[in-house]
Write a protein that binds this DNA or RNA. Structure first.
Lengths: 226, 226
DNA sequence: GTGTTTGTTCAGCATTCGGTCAGGTTTGTC
DNA sequence: GACAAACCTGACCGAATGCTGAACAAACAC
């Protein structure tokens, strides 16, 4: 699958993003400063780069430029602080393909990444399946058997998150961190609410839930699809 | 498919054009200055060249001349600044086959390119289809079943953009970037307005929209055509 | 120049969505 | 069986989002 380079100096954020992307089946390498980042990027073995603009030593702006000037057009997704010294247009001036303003939510990051990769590695990614439940990320559509199920944006994000980790038990916190903005600080009950909303839509009557509750731990999407 | 060389020193523009053309299935290589550009162009392995006239080192004017003098008659599309030092007649005097004034809109660039290539590589591209909706890029005509639908230029551009990405959900921003001038900075509502106008023309009464709304995300042309 | 078509902006409206909350219910423990 | 913790559930409300018709402006044709 796709191999990514993450250049980010905030240790905590780097670790979180890395973990998240790995859970999405990406192969992730991390550089904590501009020098290492540029060095690694120059190897040119990555399918996409995720670069923070504010970096020690060599900043992200410079990395993008240097790569482009070296004829390297690997897709680049740039991370910027909202109030920071770089703004949106500047981010794109660097030759980056897309940018994301912090704080961002994880599904947005992944969606943007997939959009960038769609041109190269991932193309025509097959729909995800669990029993007779089917979810197509690209089209953002869900079916139970042949019947399409209408979901709202957030509902879809939650379900996709579960789908990509099907069979594993996910805590409410994991789901919150994975689906909501990473600085979202609401009641974990929101996850219960969304699980319920999903269940009322995707479950088959008189059959056990496709999304099982594991009391005291979290939720699990049954790979057999309920 | 067709292989292109883009010679453009503005990183932002180069990245955007490159990305867009790749989405249209072209193979694109990019040079950021005249020297590299001429060097690559001399290889003579491209189906067409897109050259900015204002370039560092060797300008576009010179590149065209040198190529033509070397007996290379690869189709050339030249990009010029509106107010720039080169005007339209001069651009064509260089041996270019066509020219485009900045800022240009993406569909225009693609249309001109296809026109240039039609003489050589691409010819007789089949019409695009979605259900009983049919769109012919070359003729710029649209039919529902056997009945032709009249669209304005912009309406057609939007629909063609959706057609070439049928089944995928496209954000308003993607549509704006893909259809309007690359520096257009208007209200995304313009997309809503055009979607509406398209719907009133292409939809079948009492049937669901051919262009579906995916709330919070964007629009999707249903491949089954509504 | 006049009239028409096309493109864009605007503002009000309708709908949907997301998040919160306040009970209710189940589960497990003592 | 009493209790607490965890989870479920339906209702509610503000905000975001999209829809729509009309007005205005620009481009074009005659």
């Amino acid at each position: 699958m796709a191999k990514l380079l993450l250049i980010e100096d905030d240790l905590k954020l780097a670790a979180a993003v890395r973990r998240g992307l790995e859970a999405e089946q990406f192969i992730v390498e991390t550089a904590l400063n501009g020098t290492d980042g540029l060095w690694l990027a120059m190897e040119g073995t990555y399918d996409a780069l995720i670069i923070d603009l504010m970096l020690p030593e060599i900043n992200g702006f410079r990395i993008c430029r240097d790569l482009r000037e070296a004829g390297d057009w690997t897709p680049i997704l740039v991370l910027t602080a909202k109030d920071g010294e770089f703004d949106q247009t500047e981010a794109l001036d660097t030759g980056a393909d897309d940018f994301l303003t912090k704080p961002f939510s994880f599904p947005v990051l992944v969606a943007r990444l997939r959009a960038l990769l769609r041109r190269s590695v991932i193309s025509g990614e097959p729909p995800l399946e669990a029993g007779d439940l089917r979810l197509d990320s690209e089209q953002r559509r869900v079916w139970r058997g042949s019947e399409e199920i209408q979901l709202t944006a957030r509902q879809f994000d939650v379900l996709e998150f579960l789908f990509r980790r099907a069979g594993r038990v996910l805590s409410k916190k994991e789901i919150m961190d994975g689906v909501w903005d990473y600085d979202f600080a609401g009641d974990p009950n929101i996850v219960e609410v969304y699980i319920r909303r999903l269940r009322t839509r995707i479950d088959v009557p008189f059959q056990r839930h496709a999304i099982e509750t594991v009391r005291g731990v979290g939720y699990r999407l049954d790979v057999s699809g309920g």
